[in-house]
């Protein structure tokens, strides 16, 4: 598929932003000794980048506990994301959600979700909403190899298939569910094969190659927009870091394996290819990287200057129409 120069540069910027954001957020949280889980997707950047390059703000995305990349690729503001992770009231979720729950409905980002597989039917629902409105919107359900043995994921694929809903089941197979290798948990070589059971296309794609992801996603999203129903897109990829901060992945995988994947690093390979093809220049990419670094500095500065959530926020946003009488009844709060 043809990619415009502008779109190509945007893809590069997205991948660089994901990587820089995650490493920076992780470092800033550590420096401030903040508590809270952060799941890094470093290594997997090509997947959300290649898929979301086809989307507009009107399309929907439901995400996972490892969701920063999905948010950034869908256009969620990095200042709000940084402030959220650094526990500030100016965060995307007013400091109530943190890394695992970033959401921005104005960008079609329905939320990151901390329960494995749980967000998949939400994307199916967003696709149903699109169908009900007779628009050409699509919804992306991101999930990992750890989610593919959850019943709700299968039920959701079945429902989307019988109702021909415009949803892409985007499986980021990073080969590990926490410390459990995919070949232990799943008895087939390609998760995409499971699509057969739901009579939908199942496509395996190299998730380290943003161009390959872009092409496969383009086909799947095109089908969905045309009313032809869902696709299961398995993107084979790798997370460079552990499941979360406490996890040393060396306890369950070899350095050789890690090095093999890192030798195919998505950003490095993208850079090599565009230089070879002459579609982006070294200067453009260097400039983009420098700009992204400035954005990260600015996001941290913005967060530092932002106030922490007021304690009264504890009781807000539980309901749109809060019941009469305090939600803090019998809690003897703030005394």
């Amino acid at each position: 598929m043809e990619i415009t120069h502008e779109a190509l540069l945007k893809m590069f910027e997205t991948m660089v932003t994901i990587r820089q954001f995650e490493l920076r957020a992780f470092a800033e949280v550590g420096q401030r000794s903040l508590r809270g889980a952060i799941h890094l997707s470093v290594g997997q950047e090509a997947v959300p980048t290649g898929i979301c390059a086809h989307l507009t703000d009107d399309d929907y995305l439901a995400s996972t506990h490892r969701g920063h990349g999905h948010c950034i690729a869908k256009g969620v503001d990095v200042q709000g994301m940084m402030a959220e992770i650094l526990q500030k009231s100016t965060g995307t979720n007013k400091g109530k959600g943190g890394s695992m729950h970033i959401a921005d409905i104005s960008k079609g980002m329905l939320g990151a979700n901390g329960v494995v597989g749980s967000s998949v039917p939400l994307a199916v629902g967003a696709a149903l909403a699109a169908k009900r409105r007779s628009t050409d919107q699509v919804a992306i359900a991101f999930f990992g190899d750890g989610a593919v043995n959850q019943g709700v994921v299968h039920e959701s694929m079945n429902l989307a298939a019988i109702w021909k809903l415009p949803v892409i089941f985007a499986c980021e197979n990073n080969h590990y569910a926490e410390s459990t290798p995919v070949e232990y948990a799943t008895p087939i070589a390609n998760i995409a094969e499971r699509a057969k059971g739901y009579n939908m296309p199942g496509v395996v794609v190299d998730g380290m190659d943003a161009f390959a992801v872009y092409d496969a996603a383009g086909t799947a999203i095109g089908r969905a927009r045309a009313g032809l129903g869902p696709t299961l897109l398995e993107c084979k990829t790798y997370r460079y870091y552990g499941h979360a901060a406490f996890d040393n992945p060396k306890s369950y995988r070899s350095t050789e394996e890690e090095d093999e994947w890192k030798a195919r690093d998505a950003i490095m390979k993208f850079r090599e290819r565009v230089l070879e093809e002459g579609t982006l220049s070294q200067a453009e990419m260097d400039e983009t990287e420098a700009k992204v670094t400035e954005q990260m500095d600015e996001a941290v500065r913005f967060s530092d200057e932002s106030p922490a959530p007021g304690l009264s926020e504890l009781l807000t946003d539980v309901y749109v129409d809060a019941p009469k009488g305090s939600l803090g009844r019998s809690s003897h709060l703030f005394t």
């Binding site: 929907y60 329905l110 039917p121 939400l122 199916v124 629902g125 149903l128 039920e155 429902l159």
Partner: peptide, 18 residues
Amino acid sequence: TPISEAAFIGTAIGAAAA
């Protein structure tokens, strides 16, 4: 719906969110 309460209730929630 098929007998898939987790899927169709989740779908209803997702459509509401949208």
